[in-house]
Write a protein that binds this DNA or RNA. Structure first.
Length: 481
RNA sequence: GCGGCUGUAGUGUAGUGGUUAGCACUUGGGCCUUCCAAGCCUACGACCCGGGUUCGAAUCCCGGCAGCCGCACCA
């Protein structure tokens, strides 16, 4: 219900559209329209500002979407993203081949190739559990496979399923370039691709999506320290651990949690991003601990951070904080034969990685959901710093002298803020239009303005109005952000 | 991918074999209007795609695509 209402605004007002819509679209592919793009850019910029400022040695890089096969061999994605599924020739149900073989034949299918799996199925007369039909196995990989070049010289490559690998590949040179200092943070804001079998839930699971990830490389001997830990030790984190399942979220002081300090510090900074930078309601946020089954194969410690999204039925993952150890760098060192060890003060080691990973698209959806309000009016109470427009300027009526003045004010402000101008329809209608796309402030020019250079400043959330001088507006708006 | 339900302007809908495919809101233009979706005039705009049945299909049948629900999948 709410999900459709938000999607309605998104399509009608230009936040999101189905990609290739005139060809009926494709599940899991979405375009950002003009307003959505503004919002996405703002969110990404806030993210940059918040996370890159945590250390002078945190830097953003931009790496390719296409990477050669070896990268994912080393990372483990080729293997663990690659499931052999047995498909029934009559009812087309699919089953995991390894499970089927293990359960029925009590042998492990590990290491079997497709031929061997199919032979095992055939020799043992394994039939479809659903209808009894014939089964044949095929590999389904969640990564998009590409062929680079042509003819004999084709190189096998994949679209990256996470931005992270780019940072690991760039680590060695970045570390040198940045003069051999740890911790080193490499952030990548970009796209990732997963060939989801059936993307559902509208905008939540996509085939092409945005990630904002920060890979922090550090000395594993120092995992239980952080130079600024003192400043966060008494901060309360909202946690939902494995033991808390079925119970309530707890607020626990950072220093009382049994997690490495280096990890805790960044949990606090992530929580701050949501509660302080975006100013979301505290009760909508939590960290959720993943159990062994849910954890990604490369993670030693893995908590997700979640927001309570009504349109998606409750708390949903916005990202994760992953202690990946040296899984990736060691894997790349082994396969590439490149030495990825570093030497810090005479100590040689492969650094460990703490990954802060955010799903861009679902974060935006969350903001739309949390902001959406429909009572006597429809209003998107977006955080002011991510709203597509910060302010709109109107002449009270469509009269030449008011329009002229309004355009002057528009021009004055457009250098400072993301701003829009509108002079069609009644003033009330124009306010409502801005409410619907979340514009925090509207400025109206009336006949008094022509006499005394004051305007009406109207607040999106309270609908209250105040009279302010034009030469003070920039200052006043800046204070309100 | 399987099963069930669904698909008419941007949105919500009317239309169940022959309609110039109707209505409301939205949007563009105009009039009016001194602060919260007012009113008046006017314009734009749709049968998801393909095939079949039929003299004739938005309507019936088949396939595709998309959406919703359930199953499976979700590193």
């Amino acid at each position: 219900m709410k999900s459709e209402e938000i999607m309605d605004i998104c399509m009608r007002r230009g936040f999101l559209f189905p990609s290739a819509e005139i060809y009926r679209g494709v599940a899991g592919l979405w375009d950002y329209g003009p307003l959505g793009t503004r919002m996405k850019n703002s969110w990404e910029n806030l993210w940059r500002k918040h996370f890159l400022s945590l250390s002078p040695n945190f830097h953003e890089i931009s790496t390719t979407n296409i990477l050669p096969r070896e990268v994912f061999e080393a990372s483990g994605h080729l293997e663990s993203f690659n499931d052999a599924l047995a498909e029934c020739s009559s009812c087309h149900s699919r089953f995991k081949a390894d499970q089927l073989i293990e359960e029925n034949l009590k042998i492990s299918s590990e290491g079997m190739n497709l031929e061997e799996i199919n032979k095992a199925i055939k020799d043992n007369n394994l039939n479809c559990p659903q209808c009894g039909g014939d089964l044949s196995a095929k590999f389904f990989n969640l990564m998009f496979r590409l062929e680079l070049g042509a003819g004999e010289s084709i190189k096998e490559a994949y679209l990256r399923p996470e931005t992270a690998q780019g940072a690991y590949l760039a680590f060695k040179r970045s570390f040198k370039t940045l003069r051999n200092k740890l911790p080193l943070g490499l952030a990548i804001i970009g796209k990732a691709f997963r060939n989801e079998i059936s993307p559902r839930q509208g905008f939540y699971r996509l085939r092409e999506f945005h990630q904002a990830e920060l890979q922090i490389f550090f000395d594993p001997d120092k995992v239980n320290e952080h130079e600024d830990f003192e400043s966060v030790k008494d901060k309360k984190l909202r946690i939902y651990s494995i033991e808390d399942r079925g119970k309530n979220i707890r607020e626990v002081k950072c220093k009382d949690l049994d997690l490495p300090k280096f990890y805790l510090y960044y949990m606090v900074k992530i929580q701050d991003f949501y509660l302080e930078t975006l100013k979301l309601p505290r009760e909508m946020f939590r960290f959720r601990e993943l159990d062994e089954k849910e954890k990604a194969f490369y993670n030693k410690i893995h908590w997700d951070f979640e927001l309570n999204i009504e349109s998606l039925g409750g708390f949903k993952e916005m990202g994760g904080i992953h202690y990946r150890t040296d899984h990736d760098l060691s894997g790349h060192q082994k396969l590439s034969k490149e030495n990825l060890m570093i030497n810090v003060d005479g100590k040689k080691f492969i650094p460990h990685v703490l990954e802060l990973s955010f799903g861009g698209d679902r974060n935006l959806w969350a903001l739309l959901d949390l902001g959406y309000e429909k009572e006597e009016r429809t209003v998107l109470k977006l955080p002011k710093n991510v709203a597509p427009y910060y302010c709109a300027v109107f002449p009270l009526m469509k009269k030449e002298e008011l329009i002229k003045k309004a355009k002057e004010v528009y021009k004055l402000l457009s250098n400072e803020f993301s701003i829009m101008y509108d002079d069609t329809g009644s003033i009330g209608k124009r306010y409502r239009r801005q409410d619907e796309i979340g514009t925090p402030y509207c400025i109206t020019i009336d006949y008094d303005t022509l006499d005394d250079d004051t305007v009406t400043l109207r607040d999106r959330d309270s609908m209250e109005q105040e009279r302010v001088r034009i030469d003070k507006i920039i200052e006043i708006l800046n204070e309100k952000v």
